[in-house]
Design a protein around this nucleic acid. Structure first.
Length: 292
DNA sequence: CTGGAAATAT
DNA sequence: GATATTTCCA
């Protein structure tokens, strides 16, 4: 049977176990010096690349600095040109830069993880588009983007809750099941699932901000041309770049098992937040923070 | 501004 | 055709 479309997922699974980690959202939450005090300024963990599309990348432009720079401080001052998040990214060649038209924003697992993390840190209480967007600090991300994604995310959570109670099956009409994949990539904070507890306080088990990586990836959908624009290494704010380290060939099993059972959420453990980049269909561009 | 639905693009 | 994302409306 045709596995034309299915094959993308296959690859995706295999590449899921990426050494990529997440980035600390604390940046915005914690003050620079506070972060230093906590020593969370730089994560000594390993992080690695970021992009990676199964597609044959023709160019590898990256200046990849030696490693990740000091995160703290410097709130993104804004420098980075931010090429055109909307411009289609182009760079290289052709493609008129449409400055007014934002290309379709592709929510890549990593980006989504950031989104979930942000929501987790904020709590359903403040999990509003604006706050989330601010917390995410992803360049190019707009409130609208977050709002619409949030909507989808809520539906996903709802669908999940509904499933937990009744067994069922798997009837996903359409549009729901598919979304699950993307959402399944990111761990859903336990408290997310339905906070119907009138007497319960809302506490946040804090998200394992342990190994986080500092890099934002925005994927822009382009035509048959995928160009990943990595850019900006803002020297000033030493934000981040994509350090190319060796990726550990291990742990390759994450994947989404069936979560039909009650979420066992492994709180005490670190989440497996490594994801792969988008598949060959979009461009992965690292953008510096600074939207807003 | 937030939430939801519809429309459009890929 | 289906899905994702965007845009408009309440």
């Amino acid at each position: 049977m045709r596995e034309d479309e299915s094959n993308w997922f296959s690859k995706w699974e295999e590449q899921l176990p990426s050494p990529d980690e997440l980035m600390p959202l604390s940046q915005t939450l914690i003050t620079p010096h506070l972060a230093i005090a906590f020593d969370i300024t730089n994560n000594p963990v390993i992080n690695t690349n970021t992009n990676i599309v199964p597609t044959p990348q023709v160019h590898h432009n990256l200046q990849a600095p030696p490693q990740l720079p000091p995160p703290l401080q410097s709130p993104n001052s804004g420098e980075f040109d931010s090429s055109e998040l909307g411009g289609g990214g182009a760079v290289a060649g052709d493609e008129p830069a449409r400055t007014l038209k934002r290309p379709r924003l592709v929510w890549t697992p990593q980006l989504h993880k950031r989104f979930v993390d942000a929501v987790a840190h904020l709590g359903i209480k403040n999990a509003v588009p604006k706050t989330i967007m601010t917390l995410m600090s992803v360049d190019g991300l707009t409130r609208e983007n977050v709002a619409s994604h949030l909507q989808k995310y809520r539906l996903y959570l709802k669908r999940m809750q509904g499933l937990s109670g009744s067994g069922g099956g798997s009837h996903a009409s359409s549009g729901d099941a598919a979304t699950d994949h993307l959402f399944a990539s990111s761990p859903v904070p336990a408290h997310f699932l339905h906070q119907g507890r009138p007497n319960s306080e809302h506490f946040m088990p804090f998200v394992p901000v342990t190994a986080l990586q500092q890099q934002q990836m925005v994927a822009v959908a382009g035509h048959p041309q995928y160009r990943h624009v990595g850019h900006f290494g803002s020297p000033s704010n030493g934000q981040f770049e994509h350090p190319f380290m060796a990726r550990q060939p291990h742990q390759q099993q994450q994947q989404v098992h069936r979560m039909g059972t009650p979420v066992q959420n492994s709180l005490p453990s670190s989440y497996i937040d490594d994801l792969e980049s988008a598949n060959a269909r979009k461009v992965l561009t690292l953008f510096p923070t600074g939207n807003d």
